[in-house]
Nucleic acid binder design. Structure first.
Lengths: 327, 327
DNA sequence: TTGAAAGCGGTACCAG
DNA sequence: CTGGTACCGCTTTCAA
């Protein structure tokens, strides 16, 4: 592999000059710059990340932790995150916490001096611990807001508000809410969003449910027993399972019951053609999270910024007027 | 952050000794070793990855490329890969190629001198290019075999053979095969596995289909038109979509048509309770791939090893005898 | 604007 | 078994 000095010799300048020409072009004359760049190109020069990291203290590595890759929500998130990292010239280390706060903590520890910053999707760790991490290292949380820690949050709670208005407007008065996974930070906020937007409705909270097809299947009976005319599911996999079981039981949509979903994951190969859902900007969320992180890293600032991402209600054929009450 | 020398001073030895005590314990006396370890612990010493990488030439970083995280198959793969990487003291850089060979190539290039080795799931790149990569860097492919390149392949082709025998044994004579994504290396091999195991059956290949719910939905009509009494789907998301649409159309399983799937992704939150499927050891595949890679890296060897992972047929309620021919 | 030289924090060789 | 020392490749003062 060509080193800085090889380029220097070939270009007839010193190694320092090559270093400058490549990373601070404004510090050398245009003539030298272009010559050095040409030689570097010709020699296929690539800077050595370790050497640079050793002297600058910056590794060019960013960690992004997610609770699980099985949840399709994170596929576009990671994709967006990676794009942003790439644009900033960084690599992304994706780590899966498997829903264990202890593991999450261990990961923070293990990676703390190997990466320039940490992004954590829906971190399970307690707020004080996160605040603590943020003191040692740039940290940005996704879908979780902690005092003093930068965050990007997709505003599904207000989206659920829109959904509540939509359903109430159609005439529904009893709505079932199929809750998210145990311990979810967003879950109670979403439920509240739904409740507040539909004060005339009785909202029955069912769950918690993991974001799985199976769980949706299992929930079907509870939904039917609840006597609700509309259902809002936390996740699309959940809804898919519910929909499937309902169809098997001969319950039709939206004639018998209206169905809606708190996130539309068309990007994850799980498009549900005609289901009313909130379109969540997952990819954008991943991108913004990393962009924010890169900003923190490069400015060295620790000021917390919070960003709320709007969701969009996409009303489709799965929601309609409730069935006429049986006489 | 405590450095080697800090530990050395505190322990009353030289930096070299600390280095040895920590990374080659057998080269120092037990007394020094334990003292050094204790001091290091007390000082919270963590070695600096960049400094070590600079001198050893090993970064402790492994890259794992996958075509897309949206395909739930890769969730357990990455999980297993990460576990293996962790055990080997490495970090995993997950990169998504988005189905673009050009991007894949660019990634190889960009990461080549930043990581110790490369794992590529179902790489889209052409064989000669992969062979070339393998010459520069340890490379292990998953679910793709290339001459001279180490690989781990999940033996779904022979699993499809078992599935063929199973279906033929039940009396099916016309089987539809819902093919995998365009350009899939495994797809033709799976189809062949199915065909060869059921020589008495007519196997109708439909597709290609992307691994998406939507696509399965769309395939329903083609399946019905084909007059087949059994269907084998390439991926579970595909099957889910098919199942859903079939149910809506009033086609029942297995009375009207038998359904089976080439991979069972219960690990990915997409369990399909009663669907006959091949259980694929996805997590193990990820683990083995990285283990193999770590082996190549640490021995510096370039010898290609190939590993075939067996799949297991799980016959369940979705397959049964074909309906009696209408008279 | 450019060059020389001093490290960044480790590892490994060579003596002892 | 242990200490001294050179050096990995790059960035960054400091002088010229």
């Amino acid at each position: 592999m060509a080193r800085l000095e090889d380029v220097a010799r070939e270009a007839g300048v010193s190694a320092s000059t090559v270093s400058r020409a490549l990373s601070r072009p404004d510090m050398v004359s245009e003539a030298t710059r272009s010559r050095v760049v040409a030689v570097a190109e010709a020699l296929g020069y690539r800077h050595n990340a370790a050497a640079r990291a050793l002297v600058t203290g910056r590794t060019g590595l960013l960690a992004f932790s997610v609770p699980s890759l099985a949840n399709p929500f994170y596929a576009p998130v990671i994709a967006g995150a990676q794009e942003a990292a790439e644009e900033a010239g960084c690599e992304l280390i994706v780590v899966v916490t498997n829903g264990s706060p202890a593991r999450e903590q261990a990961l923070f520890d293990r990676l703390a001096e190997r990466v320039d910053g940490f992004a954590a999707a829906a971190p399970l760790s307690l707020s004080p611990l996160l605040t603590d991490v943020a003191r040692r290292l740039p940290l940005v949380t996704l879908n979780r807001r902690v005092r003093g820690v930068s965050s990007v949050v997709i505003d599904t709670p207000s989206g659920l508000g829109e959904l509540g208005v939509h359903l109430a407007g159609l005439g529904h008065r009893r709505i079932a809410y199929l809750g998210g996974p145990e311990g979810s930070w967003l879950d109670p906020r979403r439920l509240r969003g739904l409740r507040e937007a539909a004060p005339d409705c009785e909202v029955r909270a069912l769950g918690p449910y993991p974001p799985e097809f199976e769980a949706g299947s299992r929930a079907a009976q509870a939904v039917i027993d609840s006597g609700c005319t509309a259902v809002v599911a936390y996740s699309s996999t959940l809804l898919l399972g519910l929909l499937h079981r309902m169809t098997m039981l001969g319950v039709t949509t939206p004639q018998d019951v209206s169905l809606a979903c708190a996130d539309d994951l068309s990007a994850a190969g799980l498009t549900m053609p005609d289901v009313t859902a909130l379109h969540v900007p997952a990819e954008e969320a991943g991108r913004r999270t990393v962009e924010r992180l890169v900003h923190l890293v490069s400015t060295g600032s620790h000021e917390a910024g919070h960003r709320l991402l709007r969701v969009e209600l996409r009303a489709r054929a799965s929601t309609g007027r409730p069935p006429a009450p049986r006489g």
